[in-house]
Write a protein that binds this DNA or RNA. Structure first.
Length: 556
RNA sequence: GCGCCUGUAGCUCAGCGGAUCAGAGCAUCAGUCUUCGGAACUGAGGGUCGUGGGUUCGAAUCCCACCAGGCGUGCCA
């Protein structure tokens, strides 16, 4: 439990007090449930509240109000709490001390960009693997969603005290790659004026022609002068390299960068594949039937077995993935692994978990987030997205059309498990009214005020924050101090979508404060205090934007 | 058929493993403009929380059934 958070502090205080009340025989000695502290929706009910007395009523055989009164009587509030109230039907509400709140303004400024960080990770090593698109085509919008999800999760978990590594798994082995190479070679031949037919299952997108033309331009007839058996792998490798470069560049447009690019092939070159299979075999989870080698996942509660090695002797994608997870957990020793997969991989989740337990890895250490489909809409028509066939709207095009920050904010604003329509026309049309600009505008405003103060030569380091008693000021501070809780919540639940909502609320409270409280006036002491608040609000807002991977513009 | 996800205001979506008035943005309507950035602020209208049961002191939230949509259910990845 992260006790630097007021919320957790209160929870601990309640639990401790309850225990004390029980020892003093003020309350019956029943089992204490988990103490949940929350923010009441209605501000009149204080800053924090618990419904613990209601939960205890049954087991204690007492009236909830009576429990509340007894309990509240024992609680010794610390420096943060102004008052504790017991309210029917049995809630205990906590109100923060105004003095404590205002002091947070200075705490925030002192902490700067580390404000909001908490330590629930305790340095545990977490790997987040995401995007991991086959390098056979450009990224589309759906991939952007996964990219944002993973990237923000990584930054927030980092802020929550985890040691995070971001990884891209390159599927550079297998049938799809062969199809890519063959397609590329044909396009290359065509580019050099040699008639050739695209094979079945070919990649037909125009980008293949571009790629072939580029290579043809660089290498001329090089691949025509050798045997096809030699040419295809050679040109294929070059093509793969370019594809990965493109993918890397597109991701960079969203500010997404990886710590590690992991090649599937190395699993075969460095023995992880063999060792993983040996373990599974030793545990008796391997069977041969119908000419193939199977993973007996039915022995682990699955309803079907899965093929590991095909009849032709080649390993399946699933077999690679087992070796890959062997590498993640056993070779590299990550405490936790988070994979972000598209909805089309959902069927793969249970068998991957089964495989993990076959490798003696506690399946709880493996978390798989399924990000649901994104469909692209233009003129109210769903645009079909397919890499193999022709039409295709790439992630890059979408970013160029609506802007990276707007893209990030939009993707982030939905939970991973709801599918979304990305309406291009709407996104463009609404760009002026887009919440992302609302939030960024608040930051620009803050910077503008601070610039003005500087121009006027006002130094406010000696400002007295205890003057910040206006309701709008206090409401703003209340929002500001929530950031660490948001970070904790996002890191715990792996749900980054709380961040954009928080940023919007923060901006709203700032704009409202700005309207009600003029910052720079003739009242110098008050001006200085408010400048301190503005500065601190800027810290919180920019930290929030950065956690989301967005820019905090000083001017717009 | 079975599995996963979704169904909350006209639209796009929040609602944190239950609680003290169902929210936000956009759209609509009505206000605020001598002042630090109007890309702003204030307010109004608008919802049987897919349907029907169940559990509970209390259900948008948990359980069951049903309806609707998406995805999955390959020796593709």
């Amino acid at each position: 439990m992260e006790l630097s958070l007021v919320k957790n502090k209160i929870a601990a205080l309640i639990e401790h007090s309850l225990r004390e009340a029980q020892e003093r025989d003020l309350l019956p000695k029943v089992l204490i449930p988990e103490v949940l502290v929350e923010h009441p929706q209605n501000p009149e009910h204080g800053d924090y509240a618990t419904s613990l007395p209601l939960k205890l009523a049954r087991s204690m055989g007492m009236n909830p109000m009576a429990i509340g009164e007894k309990l509240a009587g024992v609680i010794q509030a610390g420096e943060e709490i102004e008052k504790i109230e017991v309210i029917p039907p049995g809630f205990i509400n906590f109100v923060l001390k105004s003095r404590w709140l205002t002091s947070q303004v200075e705490t925030i400024t002192d902490q700067g960009q580390s404000f909001g960080s908490v330590n629930i990770g305790d340095g545990k090593r977490v790997q987040i693997e995401f995007v991991s698109v086959n390098p056979t085509g450009p990224l589309h919008v759906g991939h952007g969603r996964g990219a944002i999800l993973g990237n923000v999760l990584a930054s927030v978990m980092g802020a929550a005290g985890f040691n995070v590594e971001k990884e891209y798994y390159i599927n550079d082995a297998g049938a799809q790659i062969d199809a890519f190479k063959n397609s590329l070679f044909v396009r290359y031949q065509q580019s050099r004026g040699i008639p050739a037919e695209m094979p079945p299952n070919a990649y037909l997108g125009d980008y293949m022609k571009e790629l072939a033309d580029r290579i043809a331009g660089e290498d001329g007839n090089k691949y025509l002068d050798m045997s096809v058996d030699k040419a295809v792998p050679l040109i294929g490798e070059k093509g793969l390299g370019y594809m990965l470069e493109w993918i890397r560049e597109d991701l960079k447009l969203l500010g997404v960068e990886f710590d590690n690019w992991f090649s599937e092939r190395t699993l075969y070159q460095q023995g992880q594949y063999e060792r993983a299979m040996a373990i599974i075999k030793e545990k008796g989870f391997i069977a041969k039937k119908e000419g193939a080698t199977w993973f007996v996942s039915t022995a682990l509660g699955e309803d079907k077995d899965n093929v590991l090695i095909r009849g032709d002797g080649t390993p399946t994608y699933f077999a690679s993935d087992i070796a890959y997870h062997y590498d993640k957990f056993i070779v590299r020793g990550f405490d936790r692994v988070i994979n972000i997969w598209g909805a089309d991989h959902q069927g793969h989740v249970p068998r991957m978990k089964a495989a993990a337990s076959a490798l003696d890895i506690n399946a709880d250490r493996l978390k798989i987030i399924i990000s649901q489909m994104v469909s692209l809409k233009r003129q109210n028509e769903i645009v079909k997205v397919s890499k193999r066939s022709g039409e295709l709207i790439t992630l890059k095009e979408v970013i160029e059309e609506v802007g990276a920050d707007a893209c990030i904010f939009f993707f982030l604003s939905r939970t991973a498990d709801s599918q979304m329509d990305f309406d291009l026309d709407l996104a463009k049309e609404q760009s002026d009214e887009n919440p992302v600009y609302y939030v960024q505008y608040a930051y620009a405003r803050i910077c503008s005020i601070l610039r003005l103060a500087e121009e006027k030569g006002i130094s406010f380091q000696d400002g007295d924050v205890s003057l910040l008693v206006h309701p709008a000021e206090q409401a703003l501070i209340r929002k500001m101090v929530l950031l660490p809780e948001i970070v904790e919540m996002v890191a715990r639940g792996l749900e980054p979508h709380h961040l954009p909502y928080y940023s919007q609320e923060l901006a709203t409270f700032f704009h409202s404060f700005y309207k009600q409280c003029r910052v720079i006036t003739d009242d110098m002491p008050l001006s200085k205090a408010r400048l301190k608040l503005v500065q601190a609000a800027g810290v919180v807002l920019s930290r929030t934007l950065r956690l989301m991977g967005m820019t905090a513009p000083e001017r717009m």
